[in-house]
Design a protein around this nucleic acid. Sequence first.
RNA 1: GCCCGAGUGGCGGAAUUGGCAGACGCGGAGGUCUCAAAAACCUUUGAGGAAACUCGUGUGGGUUCGAGUCCCACCUCGGGCACCA
Length: 848
Amino acid sequence: MARDIPAYNAEAIETKWQQVWDRESTFQARDDSDRPKKYVLEMFPYPSGDLHMGHARNYSIGDAMARQARMRGFEVLHPMGFDAFGLPAENAAIKHNTQAGAWTYKNMDTAIATMKRMGFSYDYDRLVRTCDPEYYKWGQWAFLKMWERGLAYRATSPVNWCPSCNTVLANEQVVDGRCWRCGEVPEKRELSQWYLKITDYAQELLDDLDQLTGWPENVKAQQRNWIGRSEGAEIDFALAAEDGVTPTDRLITVFTTRADTLFGVSFFLLPPESPLAAELVAGTEYEAAYLELKKSVEQVSSVDRQGSGREKHGVFTGRYVINPLTGVPAPIWVADYILLDYGTGAVMGVPSGDQRDFDFARKYDLPIPPIIAQKDDPLYEELKDERELRVTNVDWDHAMDAEGYLIQSGEFTGMKGGKHSEAVDAIIAHLSERGIGRKKVQFRLRDWLISRQRYWGNPIPMIHCDCCGDVPVPYEDLPVRLPDDLDLGAGQTLAEYAPFYETTCPKCGKPARRITDTMDTFTCSSWYYLRYCDPHNDEAPFSREAADHWMTVDNYIGGIEHAILHLLYSRFWTKVMRDLGMVDFDEPFTNLLCQGMVKDANGDTMSKSKGNVVPPSSVIGPYGADTMRLAILFIAPTEKDFNWDEEVVAGANRFIKRAWRTVWGLAETASKDETLDVAALNTEGKELFRRMNEMGIKCTADFDRGQFNTAISAVMELVNDASGYLNKVASADRDPALTYAVARSIVAMLSPICPHWGEELFHEALGLEGSVYDEPWPEFDEEAAKASTIEVAVQVKGKIRARIQVAADAPQAEVEGAAKEAVARFIEGKDIKKVIYVPGKLVNIVAV
RNA sequence: GCCCGAGUGGCGGAAUUGGCAGACGCGGAGGUCUCAAAAACCUUUGAGGAAACUCGUGUGGGUUCGAGUCCCACCUCGGGCACCA
């Protein structure tokens, strides 16, 4: 009985199913389910207006995973929320003279509407907004726990101050010398700020990267770079008295990875900001030059100061240190290429072993004593047995090779030198014995500066009392609420808003002042994935039971821009929670997928200022959400960037409509109640059945790998075959069980990607009840996917000369016989050395 | 300078363990239907060649019966770190 195939009306069916899912709470994650759990998570957005294409891609990937996992029998936790604190809200409020909260909540509503319009299967009952007091209370709680453990502290040091954002920044937020948010070049300011002691976890954050086998290599590499572990030694140099030769009791310690070059020290270096340098030159003839250098460094921006190509500047201090091994004095210089906050803030200058020191020595005419050489170097021949420093200068144009053999190096002469060499070990051992040096591991990672001089953030729950110092807010007083009636339009800040900062000291009861800094928004996003496990808990940030049940995140999906920032902070936060006994795992995210960027048709990043933004609504409108999701997942592998291409969307729409017609066409004869008897099928039916299994297996495997573009192409192939079957086989000759099975498979396999399309066909074309997402993923049979006749390629010495059809179960001898026959003219009169047979694939005849 | 990736048709891309390179889609060409167009459907589409066949996965070598895939050297592009001692 022929039915008219209804037209595919995306808007109508999408609206219909979105309402059904909402009403039925189809995607609620049940804590008490018997099914195995799966936690699929996309990085939550900052609500700065409506969602853009990057979000659409991110969430389409996650949603396809979550929906497919549900069909594969998992109880899926797939939550969503908002990283709602942050500067853009505050700036918008200042500009429009309103409240940051109002702006933020409005944007979140807009974003939620778009998420629903895209058909994302979130459990909206678990929505987390970081600006809700119910949430940020527990961020304050965590801060206090860290304070108790000495992991949160206040310190005064030079920090990056962004003059446009009017706040300090973390090291991680200075990208290429500029503010990550606004691009302004930050100034260095000496300020009292709040830190989290992420450096306590540096080694573990590095080591545990090896556990993360489900993370992309480049993200792990970036984190390793950022943590920046160096093995080396600290070595104590004695400051010389003013005569320049007599050692004093005062020690200045350096950090070096090249203890083997200690005999080559010809000067000693301090950074311009060094208090010691200022002290040494105070009141001397060298002071004026020193102050001038210091001033010039302060005027150079962080952008200009970085880079190894920059010309170096330095001044002599008039003082010396004594080399602890040789007893030789080395002049102390101040140089602008030395960093105050790495190592000990003092460096030994070895011009023959380090290019930077070499450049410096050349410029200021300091000696370059050679202490390491290759065996084929004439210098090696000359000095290989020389223990004393006889040659004190050389005429090179470049520092020496990093590795070689020590010369003129006392008892260590002749040893192999270089990073991690025997000479390094020997010299460190020697220094340790004498108590003037020790092994030392140095990290590039600095503590996380979390205080921000901004309003729209989570208040630091501390009170400053003139008598008692910094006093924590008692737990029972949490949360410290952010007031919502500041006059932001007039530029009022928390520090100027007495109702907020006026308080009494919890310890002594005297009037005291609240800390008016708020926490970096990255503190809020460092644990939101834990809150989703137990979002309504008002006794604790989350229960141990809930965390044990849902964590870890099985699939975490987001942009590569968080490779260091968010992902490093979250790893740190998790380890702190573990040490507090809140969780029992070391790493929060088991598998990480970093999706590529969506660029415009020319390959440029989309941005409002360039005016090349393609809003998701412009695609949903004409084509529907399902088409958009399909196009986004099909156009490229998830981790690659792609350029927006309207033709791909049109193609996806063409396919979705063709698949729609094909399923309806199959449904015409389909019956879910008949049993499929493969043997009874006609030739076309048998082949379609085989292809269904073949493509089903391929599609399933591709879903498991998160490779959606090829999963879709497998469905396309099956749709092509099914449509060919409908063309060739008259409806009376179609098998009802087969057409049902094929239609059901197509619907199931496309449902994670085109969910409304899937539900509609599941109900209307196939006449089934319930949700397609409560139905199991179809089973496919490996045996049934095998063809009875297969094509085998026949090679002669590796070159394809023929293709033959053989029965799938034909014995090897038969296949080889047929192969030889097929390529007879290529092997005629030749000697067959060997025949290689790869079953089902090829025969290679080696004939000479 | 150090550390990660990646180079395949006109384009996006596929090839799961060393086994038929170019699946699937876009674009192109031809056709059916139509007064015409759109839509849809069918055929075709790596290059050269009439064909046999030859060439072909950044370049040059190597291993192998057989290499996009493994090894060596190099080139180009993208990304991270970087005056970090």
